[in-house]
Structure formats: C-alpha cells, structure tokens
Design a protein around this nucleic acid. Structure first.
Lengths: 209, 209, 209, 209
DNA sequence: GATGAATGAGGATTCATTCAT
DNA sequence: CATGAATGAATCCTCATTCAT
C-alpha cells in the first residue's frame, strides 16, 4: 500500500529528476548546481537532500533512468531480427545522446575516471552497460542461429561499441554538423553492416545490406 | 633581434605550458588549478597572467601544441603512401590520447560546448583540426591518384573521423581494457581498411588489406 | 490512573532518553543530532518534539537523570560515616564521568556558558548540583558531630569540588592516562583526606588517613 | 631580510589571530565563525584562507600563542625559587583561563577528543604542555636541591596538574563565583603547599607555608 | 500521538583573477 | 616583468524545527 504522502514524496523526487534532466538537456549549466535545480523545481534547497545524498547521486540516477529507458525499449524488440534490434539500439542510443546532449556524455565519462565519487549503488558505467547490452544481443543472435557459432562475442561487442561511441563523440564534437537520426541510419548501413556481414549465417539476407 | 629579457619570458611561458601538460598527463587534476601549475612550475600565481589571459587560454595552447606535434609528424610522412599516412595519423592520434589521457579529451569536448569561454585566438576545435587534416590527406591522395576521382572527400573524412573518435572514446570509457597501440593496429585493419577498399584506385595494393 | 496511551508515551520518552544516553556514552556523536537519536530509537523525527521542546531539553534531562542516580546512591549511604559517604561521592562522580565520557562533561560546561539556550525547567547546573550535594553531606556531618562546628561549609564544599573537578578534567584531558577507579582512590587518600584532617572532630579516626 | 610586503602579511595574520582571540575572549561566539572573524578584522573571507588552512588551524595557533606566553613568562622566573615559580605558573595559568574564558578551555579539551581534526603541526595538547612544563620545573627543583631526590616527578606532576585543572574547571563551571586571582592565591596556600610540604628538602623554609 | 517531508538559515571552503609593490 | 596578498562570488552540505496528514 502506498499512502498519499508517499505518493507525493515520489512525485517530488521525480520532479527533481525531471527538472535536473531538463536543465542538463537545455545545457543551462555545465556543472550541476543544486540551487538552480531546486529553484527551477520550486522547492527548497534542503528538499534536494531529502532525496539525494549528494550531487553525484542525482547524476547517477539521471543516467540510470536513461539507461533503463533504452533497456526497456530493447525488451520490446525481442521478437525482431538481430539486425533490426542492433539498428534499434544504435538509434535509441543516439536519441538519448541527442536529447541529453554533451553534458550527459561527460557524466558517462566521469563515471570511469572518478569511480570513487560515484555513489555506492551505481557501479555500472555507461561502458559496462553497453558491453552487457551488446553481449546479450549478440548471444541471443547466436542462439537464434542468426550469427555464426564461432563468432567471438566479446570482440564483436567491442568493435560495435567503438562504432557507437565514434558516432556519439563525433556528434558531440562536431557541434551539430550531423542530424543524428539521418546520420545514424547512413552510418549503420555504410559501416556497421559491412562489418557484420562476415559473421551472419547464410539464412540471413546479407545481399541487400 | 630577441633580447635576453624576451628570451627569458619565452622560456617562462614554455615552462608553464610544459608543467601544465605534465600535470594533465599525470592526471593530478581534473579541473585546472592555477596555483598547482605555478607552484609546480616554481613561479608566482601572478606570473601566469602575464602569459595567459585566463585559464582557458592555457588549455587551448596545450591542445594547439599537441595538434602541432601531430601535424609536424604528418609533414614528415609526405613521401609515404596514402594508406601509410592514414595509419600513421591513427597511431599519432592515439599516442596523444594515451599520453594525455581522458583529461585532454574532456578539454577537446569542452571546446565545443563552451565556445564562449574559448579565447579569441582559439577557434580550431579538435574536430576542426581533424576535419582539416583528413581533408588534406584525402585531397593529396586524389591528386596523387591513390584515391578515386569521384570520392566525396567530406563524407569519407567524416566516416574516418568517426572511427577515430570511436577508438578514442572507447579507450577513455573502457578504463584501459585496450592496449592502445595493439588495438589501433587491429582496428585499422579490421574496420578502416575495408571501408577504404572501395575508394582506392586499382594501382593501390588493395589485396593484402 | 494511567491510561494505556499515557503509559506508552512514557515508554517512548524513556526510550528516547536511554538511546540518547547510549549514543553519548559510545561517543558516536559530539554534537547532538536529532535524526541519529530517533533513528536509533526506531521512531520518527517528529516524535522527538512531542516529548522534548528542543535539543537542549534532551541533554538537560539526560544530565538530570544522571544526577538523580548519584543522589539516589548517596541516599543509600545515609547510615555510613561522613568520610565513607564523601569517598563514595567521589567514586560515583567518576563512574559517571567514565561512563559518559568527555561528551557529558562538555554538556555540563555548556550549561554554564549558554544559559539562554537551557530550557526553563533546567536551572541546576552540574556545579549547582555538586554544591548542593556537598553542602548537604557536610551539614549532616556537622549535625552528626563528625565535623567541627566552626567549619565554613561553603568554603570546604568549594575546595572539595575543586578536587573533584580536577580529577574529572585530568581524566578527560589526559586521554586515559589514569584508570579512573584506581586513581580516585589514590587521589582521595593523598589529597582529600589531608585537607579534611583539620576539620574532623576528635572522635573520628584521623590517624590512619 | 623582510620586505615591506612580508611585513604587512605578517601584520594581517597577527590581526586575524588577535581578532579571533578577542572574539573568543568576549564569548561572542561559541563555535568559531570565519565570517565574523574576517568581518571584525576588516578583511575578506578569502583572506582567512591565505593564512590558515582551515578553522582548526586558527584555534590551534591561538592556543599555541597562549602557551608560548606562559612559557615565556616562566623563562623569566628562572632565578626564582621553586615554590615561587610554581605559584607563578598557577597564576599565569589562571590569568589565561580568565582572559580567554571557557571557550578556550573547550578547545583544549577538543584537542584530546578529536585529535584527527587537529592540524598536522599541532600535536601538543594542553595536557601535554602542562605535563612538560611541570616536569621541567620539578626536575630543575631537584637539581637545585629544593626538592627531595626520591620524589617521583611524574606522580607529583600529575597531582599538581589535577589541582590546576580543578581550579580551572571550577572557575568555568561556577560561572564566576570566584575571583580567579584571589582564589588562586588562597587555593595555592591551602591545597598545594601542604602537598608539597612532604617533598621539600630541609633547606627550604617549610614552616611558614 | 506519530509521522517524515519540507524548510531555509547558516557555515566552511575553493579558486580565478586583480593589483599594488 | 615578477610577485603573492587580497578578494568575494560561488557552491556544497547540515540540521534543528515546523506542520499537514
């Protein structure tokens, strides 16, 4: 049973998360600032600390939320083919990158360099999340007979992540030269499919790639 | 004519740059700290402002210096073949990434997000530098007949940069899963050469790629 | 008649007092923290304010409780001789100092410096308690013919308290150089008894002091 | 050579120390407050941190300064007799207690309980200072033939410190019942001299104590 | 009576930058 | 040119207390 009060508390926390995400998205700030968040959220500075131990914890939760959204979307693709799922992963990835922009990318990188400041519950860096996600997609593709048996899942996962991160970083550093959706599609066709081609089983339609 | 005084001034400035680069490399700090630099350099805080308008200017110059080193090395490769030069660019790029590590990558990214804080003299982001560099390598390859006439230099440059940044970002975010040199070589063979293959002229030795 | 509700309320309050005393004893905190107490007590922060007007009131009650324990113990010594009772007071005093440690001593001192923050009900500082207690012991000793008639009770009380506080403060500041029980005994023999000697009546066995 | 600037800097630091000591003395605050100090000193908050690493360091220096003053005064008593010097120590001690009041006593106690927060250079608690000082006075008295050879310096030092701290704590906790100077004198005569009596050599005039 | 979310004053500390010497 | 003392805005975080449910 959830009381009205607990419900309200949850709403307040969610509002803080949303406000923070919004501010990150709009690029209004570079480094977080608790006062701005609470002001934009319409609550007191102290309220922030009712829900988050510190600054770090907020950014971790924002990231986690974002990852969960991708994971959820992938879940819904279960009955699709391997290539479709992979393409969908590329697209989801870039949608989030575009939405949250460069600041959130920096947070992902921060998780790597400064793991000590990351709060206890958050030990999955973006990198680990992507490795896990791709390992799963690839393994399932092998089981489903879509990928050859002798593929090194680990190696292929790393190669694909390299492509993914190249796309992300290019977008961040080119300052919007690309329109992410178009580019992702084109990029997937031109660079990812050729790489996959060697590893797909006969059954898969490799010709029209 | 350079007076003794001017000479000394130049030395002081160079020492500041070197010290800063050293500190970045050692990862001793994440966000710059003027006092640390000047202390390590053995001069006063005020001296810093004799040579640099502000903090940004220093990091810009550190980057520029690093880019120049890569450019110089490329210059020495003029008589080599296109593929050799490109591979050399990949290697130089990763050598610097490895040497300066994640902090310098962040600076490159910062140049994009926060152009206002960038000092006047520094309008070349890492992105722009790489675009220019690759455009030059590709154009020269066309002139030399190594690349087909009808290649879209711009598109190919972007694709190659994507590969480059993917490599860099993976290294940063994987927290040292890869040994940069090995990986660069393998990566160049497995992912870059296949892409190039379609654009090379007959004369080029495409078979052993 | 005490209703069930009133009984529970009393229990809750007592639990809060005990928990606070326990935390002080363990030295878990230096400055009080309401949340820690209520958490350790298993009740809500707001509950604290049902029973205590504010933070000060709690520490006052903890002190008062402690004083009452000493007073009770003294009551049980009524049939003992003056010197025995005094020695017992010294021992009781140090037992409490040792149990609650330096934090409680600080509270006693705080009562003096910051009388404004002391709640209305608490006007007996540790000092006042000790003065009253010693006055009583000494007066009773005069009535009982154990102390000479012409002794200035007030002066003697002050002198004895000085010895008492010296012992306490030494223990606090020496960081455990002394074992309180041993020291108290030795101290009482070496410093207190000689002082008393001049004021005891003939009937008292002054020789073996 | 000390330049004008260094001289000024020293003055600023001294002014900060004096202002802090003054505020402590006046009991204007209980716990330090950097802003109050700098405001009263007429300088910016940041200036404080030019001279002190943190709050702790300031209080340590205030204590140290105070101890040094006592030590200096004792130095000037070198040619006096043992009892005179000891009495002088009691007086100096109480002069400082009276001047700086209860807050500084708390700082002395803090040094014991919370040694971790004490800055690196400050490892001498008030307790240690007093032990050292008394050991020195007592040892010199033995060498000078004023005290018996077989006196346990350590034990006697502890006993005397107990008397000293009793005096101090009484004054703090009695909220000014005593006039420190008068009391110290009376106290020294009534309680300290009798204790010393047993340890003084024949040569010393013990009768008129 | 019990709860615990919300509050906001308060305080420590950092650091880029200026400027008088 | 070199110096380094002085500045003060910026920001994080703590915690006693209130009050609607």
């Amino acid at each position: 049973m959830v009381t009205k009060r607990q419900e309200n508390a949850l709403k307040t926390k969610q509002k803080l998360l949303d406000t923070a995400a919004g501010l990150i998205r709009e690029g209004n700030f570079y480094d977080f600032n608790i006062e701005d968040i609470t002001k934009a959220c319409g609550c007191a500075k102290g309220t922030f600390y009712t829900y988050f131990k510190n600054k770090e914890e907020l950014s971790d939760e924002v990231c986690r939320h974002l990852f969960n959204q991708i994971a959820d979307r992938m879940q819904q693709m279960k009955n699709k083919s391997f290539v479709e799922r992979l393409q969908h992963y590329f697209e989801s990835f870039m949608v989030e990158v575009e939405r949250y922009g460069i600041n959130i990318c920096r947070e992902w990188i921060r998780n790597v360099i400064d793991p000590k400041t990351s709060s206890a519950g958050w030990d999955n860096s973006k990198w680990q999340f992507d490795v896990d996600m791709l390992n799963k997609i690839l393994s399932e593709a092998i089981v489903a007979g879509e990928l050859k048996n002798d593929v090194s899942v680990e190696l292929l996962a790393h190669i694909i992540i390299c492509e993914l991160y190249g796309m992300m970083t290019c977008w961040c550093m080119s300052d919007g030269v690309f329109e992410p959706k178009d580019w992702t599609e084109k990029f997937f066709d031109m660079q990812v499919k050729p790489i996959l081609n060697n590893y797909l089983t006969e059954g898969e339609n490799r010709c029209n790639m």
